[in-house]
Design a protein around this nucleic acid. Structure first.
Lengths: 223, 223
DNA sequence: ATGAGCTTGTGACTGAATTCTCAAAGTCAC
DNA sequence: GTGACTTTGAGAATTCAGTCACAAGCTCAT
């Protein structure tokens, strides 16, 4: 309840909201009416105090002595995450990873509609994939105009990633998820997140290394 | 330089080491001999003070007035990340994502050797993929014994993920990377990291939502 | 060998995130 | 209605991460 109109939600909280969202969806499916921070925390793999603090940034949606109304909280979290809006997604690069993403059921299941597949390789263009035709890179701008791309996914080799990012930004895309193992830069006002599979393995390798080195107090859950 | 034998490296630093590692590899390829924190920071997309602090946790490997010796630093970072050791990787679940991961060149390129592919679906068992035969789940223990699985990748549906994690842990795997969109739990002493594609999109959606809502000061780089 | 010019390493500071704690506010049995 | 019990919300305390600022240490020209 800050004085200004919109509440400021800490970044760490934002990154946990989708986990609560998923837990709430499950509870909703199971027709559970109310949930305590304690049990929600257990489902989300965090502690109860964190759940309460996180949710308190959205507003006072709980009832003391009772817990949170699942349906109501689900609705509020969903609204906060902007999931009530349609968010068309474009995938650039339909190699191994890009095709897997195109066919990934989890996106559709969570309301992200894929509206465009692009690849610079002419031999892939025209190919059908997940109900869409793979188009050349320069079609990005057209699709952005017609369907309005909310999120662009970069699944091209590292060497092409920055160029693709520039293309997306130029086409008006303001949210980018980068799978290429390279640092790319975008102008102010564009959100950029990255997923690097090799980095995750390397981090795991670090902790394993530490355990092997005989430091006994190294343990679990490096998230 | 803490009094105890092993230095304690902050989690945030650990998660950046692989990025420095990648940058150093590139510099090494380009036969650059020394690098300043300033330029390394630029490559890694962070600021120079952070690079210096991060590297100082590994030891004093720089030379004032000069910078860091690329080859030497590369070696040290690599050792710290445990990349000098062989880290056999097993992939459980060869659906869209699992097969993409099996064929992903980035793993091999960074020294992670895939030694096993597993799937519970009998129609997939026996299939060849990336030079390996897909085997049933109960072969995990055998492969772990023979090849020694350092890291297990879970790429099965959410409903199977916890079961697979239990199998991996039972087989002695102490590092797990989970791609299934579900919270799984592992005993103390096992490292667990997760990659959830839908969650990344939802986080991007949050910031986009915020920008649309007319809060103008929302910008870039939510990593 | 001396001084100008870099660049590291780190202690001090600032800010963010997490955890602790408990008053406040609700339910429910009787 | 009262008291026992539950659970939230949020201030306080703590821990962790990031930034600043500068002395220390190195190179190189002269």
């Amino acid at each position: 309840m800050t004085p200004d109109g919109e509440r400021r939600i800490p970044e760490a909280t934002v990154s946990r909201l989708p986990i609560y969202y998923r837990s709430l969806l499950e509870l909703s499916d199971r027709e559970v009416a109310t949930i305590s921070s304690e049990r929600l925390a257990e489902m989300a793999g965090v502690n109860a105090a964190k759940v309460r603090k996180d949710l308190s940034f959205l507003g006072s949606y709980g009832t003391r002595g009772v817990g949170y109304d699942v349906t109501y909280l689900l609705h509020e979290v969903s609204r906060e995450l902007g999931l009530t809006e349609d968010r068309p997604v474009a995938i650039v690069g339909v190699g191994n990873l890009g095709s897997a993403l195109a066919n990934y059921k989890g996106f559709a299941a969570r309301g992200f509609r894929i509206v465009g597949l692009f690849d610079s390789d002419p031999s892939k263009q025209g190919e059908m994939l997940a109900g869409l035709t793979v188009r050349p890179m320069d079609a990005i701008a057209d699709v952005a105009k017609e369907d309005g791309i909310a999120i662009g996914i970069i699944a091209v080799p590292a060497s092409e990633a920055q160029r693709v990012a520039d293309l997306l930004v130029e086409a008006g895309v303001r949210s980018i998820l980068n799978f290429a193992p390279v640092v790319i830069s975008v102008p102010e006002g564009v959100s950029l997140r990255k997923v690097d599979l090799a980095i995750e393995l390397q981090i795991l390798s670090f902790y394993q290394q530490r355990r092997e080195a005989g430091t006994p107090e190294f343990s679990s859950s490096h998230t």
